[in-house]
Amino acid sequence: MHLTRFRINTARLGARGLLASPQRLHAAVMSSFAGALPSETNSSRTLWRLDRNAKAEVLLYIVSEDRPDLTHLVEQAGWPTTASWQTYDYGAFLGGLQTGSTWAFRLTANPVHHVRRKDGDLTKRTAHVTPRHQMGWLLARQEAAGFRILDTPPERRRLPEGDEFQLTVRDERRHRFEKTDTQGGRATRVPLVTVTFDGRLEVTDPAALRRTLTLGLGKAKAYGCGLMTLAKAV
């Protein structure tokens, strides 16, 4: 497995077009692999995420089995003469995860649930739209995903009662784009709500967490969701 980081030059016109469309950016990511056919999404084995740390600092992260070639992205949305991208061997890091170790994490996800408007109707996938429900979505998946989000120490809690977690939700974004039905060829408008989670976790099941880090968490992986990364907790 490989972890790749690429800084996007937000001043370039090509970058603005990519940042405005998860569809276009997904296509650009998949074009980084010589063995991928244009019709293949391959999203189950290739994850990507945008980190918008500041207006002029936007980072693209990619987790993939194959090593990507981002030359086209450098030419379209980078610094062709002065900067490139960095790709790291992810396997050694994944293999070193141990039960009980703690990490800071970041995850961009599409928190959804299924609702039935009235009796007899089919359930419909609907986005969670409040931070409390978005946090609840992640908390409900942590055990199966191989980690436990750490509690906030009592002395740092804002409220004297109740559980608080070392978890924040930010950068909610709402997209709406057309998706073509492969069978009928009809285009439908697809809504997509994404949020970014930052927090601290403890590893409870290294094997399950390795699957989470390489296969993603939740829906809409083709559109920049599901990629969790870890960093040393400070």
Results as ranks from 00 to 15, higher is better:
56 A>S: 07
113 H>N: 06
69 D>A: 00
121 D>Q: 06
96 G>S: 11
29 V>S: 09
65 E>Y: 03
33 F>G: 07
152 T>N: 12
116 R>P: 00
97 L>W: 10
127 A>D: 13
159 L>V: 06
98 Q>P: 00
22 P>F: 06
179 K>A: 13
48 W>L: 05
192 L>C: 03
33 F>W: 11
105 F>R: 02
132 R>W: 11
13 L>F: 03
207 A>D: 14
111 P>G: 01
227 L>Y: 05
192 L>S: 14
84 S>Q: 12
31 S>I: 01
106 R>V: 14
79 W>P: 08
99 T>N: 14
142 Q>N: 11
212 T>Q: 14
171 D>R: 09
9 N>K: 00
18 L>R: 01
89 D>M: 07
207 A>L: 15
3 L>N: 01
190 V>Y: 12
154 P>M: 15
46 T>G: 03
112 V>C: 10
157 R>F: 10
77 A>M: 12
96 G>W: 11
28 A>H: 05
127 A>P: 05
49 R>H: 14
169 V>G: 03
137 W>R: 00
87 T>S: 08
92 A>T: 08
218 G>Q: 12
6 F>I: 01
128 H>G: 01
90 Y>S: 00
187 A>Y: 12
49 R>Y: 05
225 C>I: 06
157 R>A: 11
181 D>V: 00
148 R>P: 00
73 L>G: 03
210 R>H: 08
18 L>W: 03
98 Q>F: 02
116 R>T: 02
7 R>F: 04
121 D>T: 00
30 M>Q: 13
154 P>D: 15
22 P>Q: 05
128 H>F: 01
27 A>V: 15
88 Y>P: 03
130 T>Y: 07
88 Y>D: 15
133 H>E: 15
16 R>W: 13
138 L>Y: 08
196 T>E: 15
199 G>Q: 06
114 H>P: 04
45 R>S: 08
101 S>H: 12
214 T>R: 10
200 R>M: 13
20 A>S: 10
126 T>Q: 13
117 R>L: 06
19 L>E: 04
46 T>P: 04
145 A>N: 04
41 T>Y: 11
9 N>E: 04
143 E>C: 08
82 T>L: 15
90 Y>I: 03
124 K>M: 12
194 T>E: 15
86 Q>I: 02
23 Q>Y: 14
172 E>S: 04
108 T>W: 09
21 S>W: 10
200 R>I: 15
44 S>P: 00
106 R>A: 11
130 T>V: 06
216 G>V: 05
228 M>I: 04
78 G>Y: 01
158 R>T: 05
106 R>E: 13
64 S>R: 09
191 P>F: 11
163 D>F: 13
80 P>F: 01
113 H>L: 09
112 V>W: 11
31 S>G: 03
185 G>K: 07
109 A>E: 15
213 L>T: 01
174 R>M: 14
137 W>C: 04
161 E>H: 06
